[in-house]
């Protein structure tokens, strides 16, 4: 089975095509409105929707009362006017909701403030009945020039999450970002984590961590573990408090297709029997290539947008996000854990 992994991995070293993620409508609009004030633009858009051609054919689908009766021009105009009215009233309602949510988030951020102290985080977590074994978070780079934007902001967000996860006592963390920026800047990310952990735990006792990049099959340990040559010492220090895997869009659909290609090649060379290919085999291969299924997935955007997170890995994953939030904050993290503690999982039953 090592052969499957090896071949699939070698397949993946090629150049990555630059793709552009198109977020679902709600996310795209809400994120835009938080970055630049485009309320007027939205109102304009609604007005223009009067004239926008919908992609569908003009005619309504056949069947029922509409059968064979295409809408007349006047009728269409009437319905479009009504539609705009409907849109505007919904928009007003949504605006109110948006303000309410923002207020709520501000209050929550005051209530839940870790203040770089692991004790506080542990205290919050100890109140919960159960915590997840592994969690995942979707991060994204905000445009340069905004608060928390650019590469610096992304690294900061990532390392904050690492600190919270360590303090909460969770041992596995997956960090996903669409373009794999964290993967490309591992050394910077490592420095940033080091700095953040020092802030939390003091310079003397930074917890051990490992950064794993499943895509290129590399593992980075923190500096302390490497410095000591002594085996005994290594074992003592080698107890890793957290394992961070960095994922990107490349680990999603493409990996599954790559795996299919590899298996097909091995099959045609008679190195793998067709009857050996089972769901379990595929699952174990994907676990090796990408990682195990996370129990909880946190998203720090305004509405759930999975951005191509590896599909095989989100089977039973619990999702958590805060509506209209657009910042990586501790309150989202701890409230996500709270929701997880309260949920009941019953496979199929």
């Amino acid at each position: 089975m090592d052969k499957i992994q090896g071949n699939t991995l070698s397949r993946r070293t090629g150049n990555e095509p630059m793709t552009h993620h198109i977020p679902p409508p709600a996310v795209a609009v809400l994120k835009g409105s938080q970055l630049n004030n485009n309320k007027t633009k939205s109102v304009k858009a609604l007005g223009a929707s009067m004239f926008m051609n919908s992609n569908k054919a003009k005619e309504l689908p056949h069947g029922g009362e509409f059968w064979g009766k295409p809408m007349s021009k006047l009728e269409t105009l009437l319905y479009r006017t009504l539609l705009v009215i409907l849109y505007i009233s919904y928009g007003l309602f949504r605006y109110g909701q948006y303000q309410y949510n923002k207020m709520k988030l501000r209050i929550l951020n005051v209530i839940y403030n870790p203040a770089s102290t692991p004790q506080l985080i542990r205290q919050d977590v100890r109140k919960l009945e159960k915590i997840p074994k592994r969690i995942a978070a979707i991060l994204e780079m905000k445009p340069v020039g905004f608060v928390g934007g650019g590469l610096k902001g992304l690294l900061n967000d990532g390392s904050e999450i690492v600190c919270w996860t360590v303090s909460a006592g969770i041992k596995h963390l997956m960090l996903y970002d669409y373009d794999g920026i964290l993967q490309k800047n591992v050394s910077e990310f490592q420095t940033e984590i080091e700095n953040k952990l020092t802030q939390y735990y003091g310079p003397g006792n930074v917890p051990n961590y490992a950064i794993k990049i499943p895509h290129s099959n590399k593992i980075y340990y923190n500096n302390h573990a490497e410095k000591t040559d002594d085996d005994e010492n290594n074992k003592k220090a080698g107890k890793i408090a957290i394992e961070v895997s960095l994922l990107s869009n490349r680990d999603g659909r493409e990996t599954i297709v790559d795996l299919t290609k590899t298996m097909a090649d091995l099959c045609s060379n008679n190195e793998l029997k067709l009857s050996d290919i089972t769901l379990q085999l595929v699952d174990s291969e994907l676990v090796h290539l990408v990682g195990k299924e996370p129990d909880l997935l946190l998203y720090f955007g305004p509405a759930l947008d999975l951005q191509g997170f590896p599909p095989w890995q989100i089977r039973l994953t619990e999702f958590y996000w805060e509506t209209d939030n657009n910042e990586v904050t501790y309150s989202v993290f701890i409230r996500g854990l709270k929701q997880y503690a309260g949920c009941k999982i019953n496979v199929g039953k």
Partner: peptide
């Protein structure tokens, strides 16, 4: 669906 359509309209416009 109205919510989806509302946001889709603005997204398309942008």
């Amino acid at each position: 669906i109205l919510k989806w359509s509302f946001f889709k309209t603005i997204q398309k416009f942008n």
